[in-house]
Design a protein around this nucleic acid. Structure first.
Lengths: 190, 190
DNA sequence: GTCTATACCCGGATAGAC
DNA sequence: GTCTATCCGGGTATAGAC
């Protein structure tokens, strides 16, 4: 049972944000908006600075470097996933199906953040401790601790999401039955 | 039954290469070596030019632009996949397992090319006609024409490969049983 | 804490001489 | 077919003044 964020109103308490100074929090917030709107390629220190209202050079007073900023965005993503996935499972009696839906939703609502989180090796050293594991917990529970089952299902879900984001399926393809196929496959061999 | 390339010795006849002038073929060959060695980020016209022995500006005499060059590399990748997958299926009585192994091998042997082929939307307009479909044929046959089954299995395979390339599994993880899980899951619901 | 100035990289692509 | 020269753009990050 998770306490806190999901039950509160207003801004979500974030372990990641709470480790930053107010000014750094603002910068991360602005960077997140830019990321969501224009994608990872647009995330430059100059662009962020201009949106915050200061020069790029001044950003370094608040954040060590760009990697630190990206790590914060990724950590926030994991925190959001953890909440989303935990809540999805809690509200369903078919955990794997609920997770598939929640995973898909996260990626579709924030495709650029999803890319940032998955396209490159994770900067694990700079993440907020524990966020990666927290996001993975619901799936691990759903497979009753079967690591191979969890990884295989994750691979399927990530493959579906990223191939769709990369427009590798025909634009007209209805992917609902494809998700069903995968879901059935993995549920039956559980 | 495929004729030609798989049965011949020496250089493989390539529809993609045969559409280029000899000089352009050489440039593409050099670009491919650079890609394999250093990855897509290293693929700049200046680097390619210096390896060919001419200035970057002179490359434009032989290839319209960089996109054209990348499309050629991607087309070559599809051609290689088609041969690899067709041969794998032909030599096995478990087509899905054979395809999984071949897919994994392709990605591991040429990770940078694999990334180039999957990380962005395909420049379908500029590909050699038919190569994408040719690479997909073996899988479609293996699922007896079931599109959803083929797509779901592809998503699983791509997810496994790309999550591994992106170091998203623990470095110590043995992924063989994970592939087995997925394989079993999809074979049983065939 | 913010600025200007700057150092250092990198990229794709074109014009026009030879 | 290749060259030089150049145009345009981009980027991260630091030094030192205010």
């Amino acid at each position: 049972m998770r306490a806190g964020p999901a039950l509160r109103h207003g801004p979500i308490a974030s372990a990641t944000l709470s480790r930053l100074t107010p000014r750094a929090q603002e910068i991360v917030r602005v960077a997140r908006e830019l990321l969501d709107r224009e994608g990872p390629e647009a995330l430059s220190m100059r662009r962020i600075g201009s949106l915050v209202g200061i020069r790029a050079a001044s950003l370094y007073e608040h954040l060590r470097d760009k990697q630190t900023l990206e790590a914060a965005l990724i950590s926030l993503g994991f925190e959001e996933q953890a909440d989303l996935f935990d809540n999805a499972v809690a509200a369903s009696d078919d955990p794997l199906a609920a997770l598939a839906t929640a995973y898909r939703q996260f990626a579709h609502k924030q495709p650029h953040l999803y890319r940032l989180m998955t396209e490159r090796p994770l900067p694990r050293d700079r993440l907020t401790p524990g966020v990666e594991a927290a996001a993975a917990k619901a799936l691990l529970d759903a497979t009753h601790g079967d690591l191979d089952q969890a990884r295989a299902f994750w691979a399927f879900a990530h493959g579906m999401v990223i191939l769709e984001l990369n427009q590798r399926f025909p634009p007209t393809a209805n992917l609902d039955p494809t998700w069903q196929k995968g879901l059935t496959a993995f549920r039956d061999t559980q």
